[in-house]
């Protein structure tokens, strides 16, 4: 069973203030730390667990500059076998569709039964790459995958999709397929020192748009269906009331409002 897992290096915005940069189309990342996208971390673990159970090969793919090597190497340290990094100035400004076009071109040269991605990324959060990738490759796909069972010697998979309210939708599909992995499907491992040393010796193949056989019209903004215009901070709406003061004071005010509106 051969697998591809797509990973992205993203800023960690969970505990930092986010500011829009001068261009209005990005955020100021100078004070942010970066790491693997959280869902992708689970996707890596799922691919490695399936490889350990069933044998096969795990190829790690990432679209990004040299700095993305750190998340690729960590995936290799955890058990990935080889890696491809897609780097080209032409990829700048790609939306999910253009990213999926590049990934689809990259997996054409790899033998695979399942392509894993994260269900969504922590930065853009479109949750569209696995869907677009499945469509472009012309294979079945599922997103928000929180359960995965491989059946019939890898010819089929049974997939549990996490829906609202904790409902699990069970779907069977044939391979090859694309799966967008949700957090919580497994417990991602920590890289052992042995794995880290081995990862340092594994090669990361760099591919440009032309290596992938992509035209300029497939890449970046030209290859995208959506164009980012600008970021704006949320505006305080008329219906919003911001409570000022110390916690014990604001808690009292909040309780009063809830009571007044008959909500408690």
């Amino acid at each position: 069973m051969n697998m591809v897992v797509c990973v992205k290096r993203v800023p960690d915005t969970s505990e930092s203030e986010v500011h829009i940069d001068g261009s209005g189309k990005g955020i100021d990342t100078s004070r942010l730390s970066f790491g693997i996208n959280e869902c992708d971390n689970y996707a890596v673990e799922e691919a490695i667990q399936k490889k350990e159970a069933l044998g096969g090969n795990v190829t790690v793919i990432s679209l990004g500059d040299k700095q993305s090597d750190e998340v690729i190497r960590m995936a290799l340290a955890k058990g990935g076998d080889d890696a491809i990094r897609l780097e080209d100035e032409a990829f700048a400004g790609s939306d999910a569709v253009a990213v999926a076009k590049a990934l689809a071109a990259a997996v054409k040269d790899v033998e695979w039964d399942i392509v894993f991605t994260g269900a969504l990324t922590d930065d853009d959060g479109y949750a569209a790459v696995p869907v677009a990738l499945g469509e472009i490759l012309g294979v079945p796909f599922a997103t928000y995958v929180k359960k995965l069972e491989v059946m019939d010697d890898g010819k089929k998979v049974k997939v549990g999709r996490e829906l609202e309210g904790g409902l699990m939708e069970m779907v069977e599909m044939t391979t090859p397929c694309v799966l967008g992995i949700q957090t919580g499907i497994n417990e991602p491992r920590y890289a052992s020192f042995k794995g880290i040393k081995q990862a340092a010796r594994k090669e990361i193949t760099i591919k440009s748009a032309s290596d992938l056989g992509l035209d300029a019209s497939d890449c970046g903004e030209a290859g995208s269906w959506a164009a980012l215009e600008q970021f704006t901070p949320p505006v305080v709406g008329e219906m919003a009331e911001i409570l000022e003061g110390e916690p014990d004071e604001t808690a009292g005010k909040l309780a009063g409002i809830l009571k007044e509106k008959g909500l408690v």
């Binding site: 960590m74 890289a191 052992s192 880290i196 040393k197």
Partner: peptide
């Protein structure tokens, strides 16, 4: 080295 930094993160 890069190995040390990976170890550090892990």
């Amino acid at each position: 080295t890069e190995e040390h930094e990976m170890l550090r993160r892990s």
